[in-house]
Design a protein around this nucleic acid. Structure first.
Lengths: 232, 232
DNA sequence: TCCGTTTTGTTCTCCCGTTCACAAACTCCT
DNA sequence: AGGAGTTTGTGAACGGGAGAACAAAACGGA
């Protein structure tokens, strides 16, 4: 394993180079910016233009792209379509990823209806909820099925990614069941720290945490204003 | 300003010490963990216990807390209630923050109904949408008002934080209007990079980016499996 | 009172990520 | 063909955060 990676790391186009995590997190942003440029009819762009569109420093952008390979032309820039495909392939969104959503409350429904998933290579194959009342009507054209169906669905569709949009109290149970079914990537919206095996990836989105971070800075802005008044 | 900060930085309890951004992002997690512990009836906890509950390293937790002050007791640990209050005060969620949500589609409705905002010091004071059809019925007990009312609402309630849940094409316009009204912190759910003045804070939540990051790692897991089979 | 135990607060070191700066490489124009 | 201009890719310096490790401090028991 180690040896294989060492040999293929530099040159092979499909080698699994180890891309820094910070870079991985920005690749989707670049992809989005390139798609926008492409829609506008732009065929070529410089690192500076793309950096502006992605809201980052151009040197950082170039270094990020250099981890994927040399896809630009010096003195010219990058071919928008070509680069877009290369990034999409590196991320893995040239293929379709089946996804299940568990917890069809307000947030779960919003996620089920979100068109941005489908357009970026993700297909919601099932909606699950433990509450029978929630299963009365279809959401986003899909019936809401009992949570017990999870294993069957994961098996049938080869699901590797699960989304948790349940209340906090239910989230750990759901995660455990997901892991038991073979899901290895979880996007967690519940405000709780999930514990999962090392080989399972978890990313969390906590809406109120984001607001709290903003509040902290907002408070400092106000304190600063007061301090200035006092010292003035 | 510089001088004032230098003088008050170390000792004054309400001084605006500069807390590292990485620490700020974790404080809300600690706050959540402490609330959970408190609800369970725990009155005292060690850094190790709290670290486990927050999903971080205990050394990192202690260092984070040390930026706020010395709120623990050596040999004993931390008083849950006391620490909880100190963190809440540092973040600024002991006071109430009025918030406006613009874009009352699926996601906007979910946000409007999210109880986690209210319970953590945020109060949704208005829902705005440019589409008259959306204003037909109330959402989360609030009427949906025209976007033109933004300035009046911001002025009346002293709103400093705005949430954008519109489609991408509308987001920059909304942000510009928010900034013009005096909003200085924006939580952006639209998949686009907003450009705002330096003194305005923007945090973004992009649902599909999170999935793409998971997809990248998922793809690598699979590649790794294949490589192992080949080399075996 | 004194010693062992526990746990915090902090120092030190290492590593990752960011940014600068520049050589290499490509285009275009003469 | 050659030189001027442009832009990429990357080496190197820099800064910040993570984690180990330890000294300082508090508690409890004898």
């Amino acid at each position: 394993m180690e040896k294989t990676r060492a040999v293929t790391a530099r040159n092979s186009p499909d080698a699994a180079r180890d891309i820094p995590e910070a870079t991985v997190a920005r690749l989707p942003v670049y992809l989005r910016a390139l798609t926008t440029l492409s829609d506008q009819g732009t065929t070529t762009c410089s690192s500076e233009e793309l950096a502006v569109a992605a809201g980052v420093n151009s040197a950082k952008l170039r270094k990020d792209l250099s981890y994927l390979g040399s896809y630009g032309t010096r003195g010219v820039g990058y071919d928008v379509e070509y680069l877009r495909y290369q990034i999409a392939r590196e991320i893995g969104v040239t293929q379709d990823w089946p996804v299940v959503i568990v917890g069809i409350g307000n947030l779960g429904q919003a996620l089920a209806n979100y068109s941005g998933f489908r357009s970026r290579g993700f297909r919601v194959v099932a909606l699950l909820d433990a509450d029978p009342a929630r299963r009365a009507e279809a959401v986003a054209g899909l019936e809401v099925r009992p949570f017990a169906d999870l294993e069957q669905i994961v098996h049938d569709h080869g699901v590797a990614i699960g989304v948790i949009a349940t209340p906090a109290v239910a989230a750990q149970d759901v995660a455990d069941r997901m892991v038991a079914c073979g899901i290895t990537s979880i996007l967690n919206f519940a405000p709780i720290v999930l514990s999962v095996p090392d080989l399972v990836d978890v990313r969390k989105v906590d809406l109120s945490i984001e607001l709290q971070i903003l509040a902290y800075h907002e408070q400092r802005k106000m304190q600063g204003a007061v301090t200035e008044e006092v010292t003035a």
